[in-house]
Design a protein around this nucleic acid. Structure first.
Lengths: 159, 159
DNA sequence: ATAGTTGGTTCCTATTTGGAACTTATAGTC
DNA sequence: GACTATAAGTTCCAAATAGGAACCAACTAT
């Protein structure tokens, strides 16, 4: 199977990765969440080649994560802004960065520190169930198949 | 800059993606969290070519996400298990899948449904601050640079 | 003796990436 | 009027990576 066909799979993770799972794409999103909006700014900050950047921005736009809007005419110029759907990816970015902070930081510590405004402490994010408000650990989650794909998604043993 | 050199950047997200940000790697992790441990099982479930799978499992192992352990001798056979460090990536998987469930599900709905055992409801995960226990929204987070990289990490405008 | 299992490696072709130069449309400066 | 700069790409080519299939090693089972 080709990587570009993974959006055909009955898997929400695979479909998500079809939009944001390519090399460089999550770094593009990182910069989006830091306020970067313009092509050349992305290119200089990331060091990615221009035509790869062009491709990734196009995929993100087609996937509904970014919105390409004109910020001037004569000459026509566009910038890329996170959509509401795109902003919902923030928890993914936070958890990825937090994992790196914890396990991969060098001698100088984490490059960026995120603080929770309300309590003032450095943020240590964890999962919370929006129904009951409890903290969720991996073992607290029970996975069930949608009957439509019965038996095709999960191996015999789960864990 | 080459993709394989992004772990050189002073960015926790970039360093994390150097380990798990390649095409296919997050799908390998998805299967790890579903209990898959063996080479041929990964290969059949993912449809990825064997030498790409071999490469990704090696990178995950070198990165400390998976542990390659012998489960029999004569003939010697290995399997891949999540390390404690690897298990901490679960929130990333949950949020990615949840985003796909919400925005990319087809007519039959989400393929897998995750339930929170404690309350019995389908899980809707959100960010929680482990210090104060409050729910965290993107705008609740204030980002500061580590002084060591002052001025090199963030653009003038943040948001 | 033959076939099957498991965890890969090798080979070749096709696609994607990295790097640099080029393009289009316009504004500003000499 | 001729240059230079800016922004957002596109084009070109060489190098690296992916896809697909076959092959291999070290056993076990029939």
């Amino acid at each position: 199977m080709r990587w570009q066909d993974i959006d055909q799979q009955p898997c929400s993770l695979a479909r998500t990765l079809a939009i944001i799972g390519d090399n460089w794409t999550l770094l593009v999103l990182r910069d989006c969440f830091m306020g970067v909006r313009r092509f050349d700014d992305f290119q200089q900050r990331l060091g990615v080649t221009r035509h790869v950047l062009s491709d990734r921005l196009r995929k993100l736009t087609e996937g509904g994560v970014l919105d390409k809007v004109a910020y001037q005419e004569r000459p026509l110029r566009h910038e890329y802004r996170l959509t509401a759907m795109g902003k919902e990816l923030y928890p993914v970015i936070v958890h990825l960065a937090q994992w790196g902070d914890k396990h991969l930081a060098g001698e100088h510590g984490a490059p960026l520190i995120r603080y929770h405004r309300q309590c003032g402490e450095p943020l240590e994010a964890q999962l919370q169930c929006s129904h009951c408000g409890d903290t969720v650990k991996p073992t607290d989650i029970r996975v069930e198949e949608n009957p439509h794909w019965k038996g095709k998604l999960m191996p015999g043993r789960t864990g």
